[in-house]
């Protein structure tokens, strides 16, 4: 198993700032927009983006929800037990522009589940997808991101490991090769 650094904390900071700027260009004052972070791994990224928008771009009353997709996944009763996570959809999404945020877009199945889960909360006017890492050529479903931090062409035995925390300096993204040499 070998581990290759894909993005350092410095690179990540630049990328996340750029993603926040792109959102600002499209969503303006975010009056009709709601950020929806996907549980569990989109949580930290969505909070980081919210912080940048509020502190650097002076966006006020930015609405953020956290969506748990466990009950809508298509692999229940298949290979592993699915334990649900905390879910908070307190901000109304009816007629709003939704920005779904996750760390890695791989097969697209999580995003499909998220779209199905959102259905239960209302009818947004638009849903966009923002991901930190877009693993191209690995999709099982016709789903593409609207905003992506970095495109990666990793092979199937490789795992992209995103390490994001509240402390920026410890952030990193690795590619881990799981084949035994």
């Amino acid at each position: 198993m070998n581990k290759k650094l894909l993005l350092s904390s410095k690179n990540l900071k630049i990328i996340i700032n750029r993603l926040a700027c792109q959102l600002k260009e499209v969503h303006g004052d975010f009056k009709d927009s709601v950020i929806v972070g996907l549980q569990p791994r989109g949580l930290v990224l969505s909070k980081s983006i919210k912080k940048i928008l509020e502190e650097q771009h002076k966006i006020q009353n930015l609405k953020i929800n956290f969506l748990d997709i466990t009950f809508h996944r298509d692999d229940f009763r298949r290979d592993k037990v699915l334990n649900p996570n905390f879910n908070n959809m307190e901000n109304d999404i009816e007629g709003k522009k939704i920005i779904l945020i996750d760390d890695v877009l791989y097969t697209g199945r999580s995003v499909r589940s998220a779209l199905s889960a959102l259905d239960y909360y209302g009818r947004p006017s638009k849903i966009q997808l923002l991901v930190l890492i877009d693993r191209r050529f690995a999709r099982h479903l016709p789903i593409q991101p609207d905003f992506s931090g970095r495109q990666v062409d990793a092979i199937q035995n490789e795992k992209v490991f995103v390490n994001l925390s509240a402390d920026d300096k410890k952030n990193s993204v690795y590619i881990i090769n799981q084949t035994n040499e």
């Binding site: 809508h72 239960y120 909360y121």
Partner: peptide
């Protein structure tokens, strides 16, 4: 404890506008 933990999640489901999941 696992049942309690999972119950917390379902209590939240029961407070949603649509109190139903397709699982």
């Amino acid at each position: 404890n696992l049942i309690f933990e999972t119950t917390n999640r379902f209590l939240e489901v029961l407070n949603r506008p649509i109190k139903k999941v397709p699982t």
